[in-house]
C-alpha cells in the first residue's frame, strides 16, 4: 500500500508542480517508444482550442474506412458543410487520432479562396482507434466529429 500511495502522491504532485521536469524525463525515457512529438489527444485538443468548448456536429462529414487492413495508409476525408464567405468561413481543419504516440496528423488553415471546407490525406494508425476531425470556424467556435477505424496491421513502427 505504501508504494501505491507514494506513486499516487507523486503523480498528483508532478501534474501540478513538476510538469516540465516530468515531461522532459518522459521525453528521455519514452523517446524510443513514442517518438519525438509525443502528445495525447486531450492535450492536443486543449492546445488547439485553448480550453474552449467543442461541440459535436453533423456539419462535418468525415469519411474513413470502417476496417483498414493496412494501418500505414488510411485515407481520411473531411468535408465541412459551411459557407466560405469573407466573414463566415471554415478557418481550420485539424485531423487527430486517439491512440498514436503523436495524436496530431495535420492542421490545415483554410481561407475563403478555397471555396469549400474540404481536406483529404492519408494517415498512419498504430492500432484500432478513433479519427477525430476538429474544425474551427471563423467566429471562434469549434466543432468536431469522430469515427472509429478497425486496424488489422498497425502502421506506426
Amino acid at each position: 500500500m505504501k508504494r501505491r500511495n507514494f506513486i499516487k502522491s507523486m503523480m498528483a504532485v508532478s501534474a501540478v508542480a513538476v510538469t516540465p521536469v516530468v515531461l522532459m524525463a518522459k521525453d528521455e525515457t519514452k523517446a524510443k517508444k513514442k517518438g519525438p512529438n509525443d502528445l495525447t489527444v486531450e492535450a492536443a485538443i486543449k492546445a488547439i482550442t485553448g480550453g474552449k468548448e467543442v461541440k459535436k456536429s453533423d456539419k462535418i462529414k468525415l469519411t474513413v474506412p470502417e476496417i483498414a487492413e493496412n494501418g500505414a495508409v488510411v485515407p481520411v476525408k473531411v468535408q465541412v458543410d459551411h459557407p466560405m464567405e469573407e466573414s463566415n468561413y471554415v478557418k481550420a481543419i485539424h485531423v487527430l487520432n486517439t491512440k498514436n504516440g503523436n495524436s496530431r496528423c495535420a492542421d490545415v488553415m483554410l481561407t475563403p479562396a478555397n471555396g469549400k471546407g474540404y481536406f483529404a490525406t492519408r494517415v498512419k494508425l498504430s492500432s484500432t482507434q478513433e479519427v477525430v476531425a476538429l474544425v474551427e470556424l471563423s467566429d471562434g467556435t469549434f466543432i468536431k466529429a469522430g469515427k472509429s477505424v478497425k486496424v488489422t496491421i498497425g502502421g506506426c513502427g
Partner: peptide, 24 residues
Amino acid sequence: GKPFTTMKVWETVSTNPYFSVNYK
C-alpha cells in the same frame, strides 16, 4: 504568390503523402 492554404503536418501522415484541398 498569395497563399490560400497553409498546413502543419506531423509524422503520423503516411509515406509518400497526399494532400487534397479545394480551390475556387
